[in-house]
Design a protein around this nucleic acid. Structure first.
Length: 567
RNA sequence: CGGGCUGUAGCGCAGCUUGGUAGCGCACCUGCUUUGGGAGCAGGGGGUCGCCGGUUCGAAUCCGGCCAGCCCGACCA
């Protein structure tokens, strides 16, 4: 490609609405343009990068025996109703009607469709099957952000495994795990596998691949010493022992006028610090109230509550509902003596006594509460959010919390969809066995953004060679000087002949402009061809990443570049 | 969905308080000079001022409604 003819609309200034580094650089570098919230046009450079990412993914999926499909993005409501997700997905699913007034949806994921196809599997001899596609997904995200990091329309490689038994699923899962590690390594991403919640998809052994980045939306809890790594939605830590002193014989009610928060009660004369309080939250799970108890200073992780209860419909109770349930307003809520509402308690409250909590009587609290003696806990769960510096559950070392981008997610679906769709095969004994599935996803644009987040400098993007839009930029200086452009063009031909993807910057522009563009766009190697060097038959080769420049004989330039790119 | 903010040329912005028919920088086009790190001079093109309505002789500017986008939170494979 000649730069003079290429559509690479680079910008000198950052777009005003871009926050994330990848967002800024991809817009400035002429890779993407926003059409609306959560929808981006992908320009020629972006398409080149994306097709290379896709190539890496295809190679690694094919390597473990994956077979590529392409399924419709447009789905009939029936398959989603069959799996029960027509309702579950709620507002996140784009829905539409066709001319016959039939309900349709734009696919957010493809378990239902692959599941439908898998009905044609007949025998255990056919298994395992690894099916994948690279397809557009539509999700009406409440809040798209970060440029291409979180959009409403994006490309995903999703794959699904089908096995006859759990051992088979374990093996399929493991193969995907390894394929994913290879994919991220080839993309230049340092992706940490972490334990995760499988959320609305249902499943177990959920593992997310996380790339550390301040632009990330997830938080990862990591232990340097033993390697424990988990999403905040799931992470646990060791709770330090707290001295509750001498146990009170009974519960004592006391007046706490104006006290509404944990902080108020900690400051209140006769109150108690947060770690000696019981925080009482009211949630509505599947339409029914539940009390959720945590230590006063511990935040709730809603995902843990959802995972722990299996609830699908799920929200904090409204003030009226709280008053109806407990007879008091938030600020004086408690679980002591509550029998009519199931109580879910965080494990950090186990064994605690001399605790303070609300009395279910406005402006009154209780002290001397022994959790296990005074509260009828229906279910103990891990519900609290851990924080940086707490001790690792397994090894006791200090835990680190960092922000990360979820670049991939693999999990075991089990028989959820197979049951819903009746997917089964005959086993060796000739008996029908329900097929057991796994699901594995990688978001292409998000991965590209993650690469930019982790591979850039003050001048622009620094692509790994494997996914750079071009490997080499030939920057011709003084296109007006006879011989300059011709030398560049010859080198350009030779590069392509040698299989090097090259762009020839033949624009009649100032050197600074051309250097800056090549750097912003992030081409790994730049060859500077100009009269100054040509006098002695020399061009300059610069490594984008290191900035190292070396003079190379024009004749040996292609071989030199090939060698650099092989490395 | 709650809170905050913004919509004026491709990008970044000023003008709005105090109404008089739109401007700056970059980018773009032409010419000349220039050219190893974002050139100079001269000339030029480009805008339904987000949309609809109202007030007014007159609205980018004032008023009302709507839409869109961004940020924080909620939410979210």
């Amino acid at each position: 490609m000649r730069w003079s003819q290429a559509f690479i609309p680079t910008l000198r200034d950052d777009p005003a609405d871009a926050e994330a580094i990848s967002h800024r650089l991809l817009v400035r570098g002429g890779y993407i343009r926003q059409l609306m919230a959560g929808a981006y046009s992908q320009l020629p450079l972006m398409i080149r990068v994306r097709s290379k990412v896709a190539k890496v993914i295809r190679e690694e999926m094919d390597r473990i025996g994956g077979q590529e499909f392409l399924l419709p993005a447009l789905h009939p409501a029936e398959v989603w109703q069959k799996s029960g997700r027509w309702e579950i997905m709620g507002d996140e699913m784009f829905r539409l009607r066709d001319r016959k007034d039939a309900d349709l949806a734009l696919g957010m994921t493809h378990e239902e469709i692959f599941g439908t196809l898998s009905l044609e599997l007949r025998s255990y001899r056919d298994l395992p099957q690894f099916w994948y596609q690279i397809q557009t997904k539509f999700r009406d995200e409440p809040r798209p952000k970060g440029g291409v990091l979180r959009t409403r329309e994006f490309t995903m490689k999703d794959s699904y495994s089908f096995d006859i038994d759990p051992a088979g699923l374990d093996a399929s899962f493991q193969r995907h795990y390894e394929a994913y590690e290879r994919i991220f390594a080839r993309l230049g991403l340092d992706a940490v596998p972490v334990e995760a919640s499988s959320g609305a998809m249902g499943g177990s052994d959920s593992i997310e691949f996380m790339v550390r980045s301040d632009s990330g939306e997830d938080e990862v809890v990591f232990c340097r010493s033993c390697g424990y790594a988990a999403n905040m939605e799931r992470a646990t830590s060791r709770v330090e022992d707290i001295d509750d002193g001498v146990e009170h014989a009974g519960v004592e009610k006391f007046a706490t006028p104006g006290v509404r928060t944990i902080g108020d009660l900690a400051d209140f004369d006769g109150g108690a610090p947060g770690d000696h309080q019981i925080k009482t939250l009211v949630y509505i799970l599947e339409g029914e109230p539940r009390l959720v108890l945590l230590r006063g200073d511990h935040p709730l992780v809603e995902q843990k509550l959802q995972d722990g209860t299996g609830a699908i419909e799920f929200r904090p109770a409204h003030p009226e509902e709280i008053r109806a349930a407990l007879g008091a307003d938030p600020g004086s809520l408690g679980a002591v003596g509550v029998k009519h509402i199931p109580i879910l308690a965080d494990l950090a409250l186990a064994g605690r006594y001399n605790m303070v909590t609300g009395a279910n009587d406005d402006d009154f609290h209780l002290r001397g509460v022994n959790v296990e003696r005074d509260i009828e806990v229906s279910k103990w769960l891990d519900l609290r959010e851990i924080s940086d510096g707490e001790s690792c559950f397994t090894c006791g070392s200090s835990l680190e919390v960092f922000k990360a981008i979820e670049v991939g997610h693999i999990f075991k679906l089990g028989t959820k969809y197979a049951d819903a769709f009746g997917i089964n095969v005959l086993d060796e004994a000739g008996e029908a066995q329900t097929v057991i599935m796994g699901s594995y996803g990688i978001g292409l644009e998000r991965n590209i953004a993650a690469v930019v987040e982790t591979h850039h400098d003050e001048k622009g993007i620094v692509w790994p060679v494997a996914i750079a839009p071009y490997s080499v930029a030939i920057t011709v200086l003084r296109t007006d000087v006879p011989g300059s452009l011709e030398a560049g063009e010859r080198l350009y031909e030779q590069c392509w002949n040698a299989g090097l993807e090259t762009i020839l910057d033949d624009r009649d522009d100032r050197p600074g402009v051309k250097f800056a563009d090549a750097e912003l766009v992030g081409i790994p190697f730049r060859v500077t061809v100009g009269p100054r060097g040509l006098e002695s038959g020399v061009v300059e080769v610069q490594d984008r990443a290191s900035g190292v420049t070396e003079a190379v004989a024009l004749e040996g330039a292609v071989a030199h570049l090939s060698a650099l790119i092989q490395r």
